[in-house]
Every structure is written in structure tokens, then in C-alpha cells.
Amino acid sequence: MKPFESLTSPVLLLRENRIDTDIIYPARFLLIMQREGLGQYFCADRRVDSEGNAMANPIDEAKERGAGILIAGREFGCGSSREQAVWTIKDFGITCVIAESFGEIFQANCLRNGVLPIVLDPATVEELAAFGKDGELSVDLVARTITAGEKVLDFEISDNARERLLKGWDETGMIQSRWGAAISTFEEGQRAAQPWLYEPLAI
């Protein structure tokens, strides 16, 4: 997973509340399991009509401007727990989402996949959205700040979540980094005491 340290980018604005995971990644695409290429399905029903024709929309306009930051409203990513909702956002090019609140599972999936979720109060989100209509935002995870023009705002994120993103750890990477030495010591002892557990199976 690619580490996240900082990002300066135009903004995609999706300011309505309760944009759920079925809007982000419609259920009819759930049988597609690979992550690469999923960005084409991000908010598909807002970008393509029922006959498969592209529609003018702010999502593709933001992508053309190189938007890597998304600003939403309340409960962004609520609904079902499908992890593809985060996969499609990241493949679309978004690596930071700023919202008033998130669906709990969606927020956890962001951290597992290298997307920074930032929770801010409604007034601050609105202020950033107003600036982001025409300007770029800068997000610095090292300093835990967002810069909008001359204004610098602090945001909160747990030390654990921050470390995971800064070091690019998924679940496996986090376990290996923190307990890898202990796991190796255990395996060496077990291999010596119970070598048959490590013999190849005769199939």
C-alpha cells in the first residue's frame, strides 16, 4: 500500500448527506473483485445514463482537473460494508475524503486501503468546500493540517491510524511490523519442537 504523507489537489465536491456505499459503488458491480479499473464505476449512476451514455457531471469534471480530495457531508459511506466502495474511490484518484462524519466500516476501510478520512465540524467543512470550488487544498498528515490559501486548520486523527497511513501498512503489514520478530521466534521454536507441522503434505 502506498504511504500517504501529504497532498495538494483540486477538490471534488459531493456535499449532500448520507451518500451511501451503493451510490459510491452500485451493487450490480459487486461481482467484479479486482481492484484495478474500479474507478470507472465510482458513482456510476451519476455519470452514465441508463443506456450507458456519459452525462455531463461534476465528478468527471473534477477528475479532469486532477482532484484527489473529496469533500462530502454527513455519514459519507454509510450503508453496506462493501470494501469496493473505497477501492473505487482510490482507483478514481481520490486519496483523501473530508466529511462531517463517516459510516464506521467505510472509515475503517479507508485506513486499510491508504485513503485518509478526515472528520471536521460542519462549519469548517463548508468553509473548505467554498474555498475548494476554485482553489486547491493542501493536506499534510505529518503535521495534521489542512491549508486553504492563507488559512491553516488542524485536524484530528489517532496516532495508530496516522502511523498506518504514513507507513503504508495494510492489516498484514501492520502485524508484521509490530510483531514480526515475535512471530518468527515462535515459528522457530515450534519448528524445532513439532517439525512434522512444517512437512509438505503428500497429496
Rank of each mutant, 00 (worst) to 15 (best):
I98V: 08
V48R: 03
D140R: 13
L137M: 12
R15D: 04
A161I: 03
E100Y: 00
T145G: 09
L111Y: 12
L201V: 14
Q176Y: 01
A108C: 10
N109F: 02
Y25P: 08
G149D: 02
K167Y: 02
L128S: 01
A143R: 15
D60A: 11
V86W: 05
K63Y: 06
D140P: 14
E150G: 09
R28K: 15
R191K: 15
V97H: 05
N17R: 09
S9C: 10
E187P: 05
W196V: 07
F102Y: 09
I71L: 09
D134A: 12
G135A: 11
E51I: 02
D60F: 05
E156Y: 02
D91F: 07
S9V: 11
D22M: 06
K151R: 15
P10Y: 07
I23K: 15
E104F: 06
E100H: 07
N160M: 13
A193W: 03
R112P: 01
A182P: 03
F106H: 10
W179V: 12
M1H: 12
N53P: 06
P58Q: 07
Y25S: 11
I32N: 06
I118E: 01
M33Q: 11
L12P: 13
E156R: 09
R28P: 10
D20F: 11
P200F: 03
G149H: 12
M1A: 13
Y25K: 10
R178G: 03
L111Q: 04
R144K: 15
C43G: 03
E199A: 14
S80L: 04
D60E: 13
L120G: 00
Q190T: 11
A193F: 05
D49A: 09
Q190K: 14
F4Y: 14
F29Y: 15
D121N: 12
T145W: 07
S6H: 11
E156A: 12
S50I: 12
T88W: 06
T124L: 15
P58R: 10
S138V: 07
A193V: 11
E127N: 07
G52V: 05
I69T: 02
T88M: 07
L31I: 10
G173R: 06
I69P: 00
S6Q: 14
D22T: 05
G149E: 07
Y198L: 05
S81D: 08
T124W: 01
F4D: 08
L128I: 04
G52R: 05
Q190E: 09
G39E: 03
G77T: 00
R178T: 11
F4H: 13
D49K: 11
Q194I: 09
R112Q: 12
G79P: 00
G66W: 04
G93Y: 05
E150Q: 15
L7Y: 10
Q194H: 13
C43R: 02
S158M: 07
A99G: 04
E100G: 06
I157E: 04
G66Y: 03
E126D: 14
M55P: 11
W179Y: 15
S177C: 07
F155Q: 04
E104T: 10
S184Y: 04
G173Q: 03
L128Y: 01
L111V: 07
Q34C: 02
P3L: 09
R144M: 12
D45Q: 12
L141Q: 09
L116C: 13
N109T: 00
E83M: 05
R164P: 01
I98W: 00
A181D: 13
L7M: 14
P58N: 13
M174W: 01
L137F: 08
M1Y: 13
I69K: 08
E199F: 08
